[in-house]
Simulated scan of single mutants.
Amino acid sequence: MADTASPRGLAFESPVVRDYPTSEGGDLTLTDASATTKWLVRAGADGPTADRLGARFGSSQVAPGGALVLGSRPGEWIIVGTPDEVAAAVADLDGLEAQEFMTALDWTHSRAMFRVTGADATSMLEKVCGIDWGDHMTPDGAVLSASVALTTCDLARNDRNGTPSYLVFCDRSFGQYLFDALIDAGNEFGLAVSAG
Score class of each variant (00 low, 15 high):
Ala2Pro: 15
Ala2Asn: 15
Ala2Phe: 11
Ala2Cys: 13
Pro7Val: 02
Glu13Phe: 14
Val17Gln: 14
Tyr20Cys: 12
Tyr20Val: 14
Pro21Met: 09
Pro21Glu: 14
Glu24Met: 08
Thr31Ala: 11
Asp32Leu: 07
Ala35Lys: 10
Thr36His: 00
Thr36Ile: 08
Val41Ala: 06
Ala45Met: 01
Ala45His: 05
Pro48Thr: 12
Thr49Val: 08
Asp51Thr: 05
Gly54Asp: 02
Ala55Gly: 02
Phe57Thr: 12
Gly58Ser: 00
Ser60Asn: 11
Ala67Pro: 00
Arg73Glu: 12
Pro74Asn: 08
Val80Ile: 14
Glu85Asp: 13
Val86Ser: 02
Ala87Leu: 13
Ala88Glu: 09
Asp94Phe: 04
Asp94Lys: 11
Gly95Cys: 12
Gly95Ile: 05
Gly95Pro: 05
Ala112Val: 01
Met113Lys: 05
Val116Gly: 03
Asp120Glu: 14
Ser123Met: 14
Leu125Glu: 07
Cys129Trp: 05
Gly130Pro: 03
Ile131Gly: 09
Asp132Met: 02
Gly134Met: 04
Gly134Leu: 05
Gly134Gln: 13
Gly134Tyr: 06
Pro139Glu: 00
Pro139Arg: 02
Asp140His: 15
Ala146Trp: 10
Ala149Tyr: 01
Asp154Glu: 12
Ala156Pro: 04
Thr163Pro: 00
Phe169Pro: 00
Asp171Met: 05
Ser173Gly: 15
Ser173Met: 10
Gln176Asn: 11
Leu178Val: 09
Asp184Trp: 00
Asn187Phe: 08
Glu188Cys: 06
Phe189Glu: 09
Gly196Glu: 14
